[in-house]
Each structure stands twice: as C-alpha cells, then as structure tokens.
Design a protein around this nucleic acid. Sequence first.
DNA 1: CTACTGTACCACCACACACAGCACACCTAG
DNA 2: CTAGGTGTGCTGTGTGTGGTGGTACAGTAG
Lengths: 134, 134
Amino acid sequence: MIKINTGDSRPIFRQIVDSIRRQIATGELEPGSKLPSVRGLAMQLTVNTNTVAKAYSELTAQGWVESRPGLGLFVSKPRKLFSDREQERRLNEAIQQFINQVIGLDYDAGQLLERLEREIKALEKGQGRSAGNE
Amino acid sequence: MIKINTGDSRPIFRQIVDSIRRQIATGELEPGSKLPSVRGLAMQLTVNTNTVAKAYSELTAQGWVESRPGLGLFVSKPRKLFSDREQERRLNEAIQQFINQVIGLDYDAGQLLERLEREIKALEKGQGRSAGNE
DNA sequence: CTACTGTACCACCACACACAGCACACCTAG
DNA sequence: CTAGGTGTGCTGTGTGTGGTGGTACAGTAG
C-alpha cells in the first residue's frame, strides 16, 4: 500500500518511486508481481495520472520494473542496477548530503551511527536484493 | 575558501550555506571571524549578490552567524540551534533520505556503516560545536 | 467490438532559483 | 563633513521543475 504525505517536502512522484523501491528492496513486492495500474493508483491517491506515469517511468528506466505492453508493469528480477563507479558516486553523494543535514544537530558520532545502524538493518529483514552479476 | 560546483545538483545558495556551516562546525572558521562581504564573495564566485545574500540570510536566521550593522557578518559562539523535537525530526528525515538514496546500491549494512563512520568522524577532528544549554 | 494497459503528447499554472538593478541605514576612514 | 564599504530590503525578469487536465495511440484480454 502506497501512501502520500502532502506535508512531505519531496515531490509526489518521488514519494511514489521511493515507496515502491523500498517495497521491492525489502521483498514486500516480489519479482513478477504486478504494480497497480497508472489510472488506478492515481485514482487511489487522488493524484493526476501523469504524476504516477512519471514515477513508473523512472522505475522502468532504472530497471526496477518491466513493462509488458497492454498488460502493465511487473517487478523485474534482482540485478545490478548501476556500474561500480556510479554506485560509488551515489554513495558518496548520499553521505555528504546526510552530513550536511545533521551538521548543526547536537549528536555525536556514536549516536548517529547507532541510529543509522538500527534503520539500515531494519531494511534487510526481508532480505534485500543482492544479486550476483550484471 | 568557498567553492561552487556548477555540476552539483544543489542550488548555489545552498552550496554556500553548507560550505560555511561545515567550516564553522569543524572549527575552520572560529567564533568572531568575519565572513567575506556579500559583494566580495559574489564577485569571487561570479554569482549574483542576491544569491550570496540569501545564503547569509539563512545562516543568520539559524544562528550560525550574527550581523553587526555596517560592519559585516561574524561567526557566533556555539549554542544549541534547535529544540529537541526539531533535532529528532531532522535526524529522522536525514536518515530516511539517506536510505532512499542507497536502497538500490549493492552495499550491505556493514559497508555502509563503515563508510559513514569514516566520514562522520572526519568532521570531529577540529572539535565540532557541542555547547551546553540553550 | 469494448475495456483495460502503458506511453506520448499538448497546454496551463505555481513555485523555486538565479539574475539585475535600485534604495536605505549603518559604520569607518579620510 | 564626504566617500566608500557593510548588510538588508524591494521590484522585476527569465528559466526550470512539479503538478494538473485533457487527448490520443498501440497493445492485450474478454
């Protein structure tokens, strides 16, 4: 089930992408599963169809789901999504962004790492995608 | 010295804010230090004065620097910047955002935490701000 | 055929970002 | 005193992104 939070600073289509990506990564959505239709999800979220289509377009472009013409979108089998360099670049960017956000907060390194560890390991509960080769 | 990267996805004024905040947090800019003038920094970065002014405005509003009328902006003494709830909210947001960015990458929890630990501890080298009470 | 699927357009509006120029109050150096 | 530097405020203009609304088309299932 996908939820949209209007108080969230992220744009709507990004919330949809993140939500579905997380469901796939945690195994909540298994490979082969069918995603809700563009119009159906748009109706449920009281959002424009183009907004959902934009989210689906990104998921398809990044290889999380595959389109079967006339049928819908289906979760694709786990595989490596980015090159090593691209992965490294994205990880670095994510870390720097995290630091910039917590840099004024009164937490020490230990507290930050403890909180991060808890949240990260919660993801691997349903066994995230860790496929072999490309 | 402040650098602007046009390839960076962050808006210019945000890059300036982040850069200066980090310099203050790491002690590279000590309390009482004078920031470069709005027009001077804008000239150096080949950027509009309003863009620098916007960055300075945010730094002032968040209490990182203080304005002495007619003289300039000066790094203020360390103190608590946000309420406990606000700190907790921002930390949570930062963590969720980090997870959303690394969720498709082929790193396990151990690798992520190791990388995070290295970068976070690098910040505390010059003794970050950890003042007592509000 | 009809009804559903994703996809691709078009137009419109709102907002953030950056740029440009101008004005004002303040302080210091001469 | 004046001249020049300081932050701050305002108006405007242009560009890009996000969101909405509507239409259209090819593919698939019944």
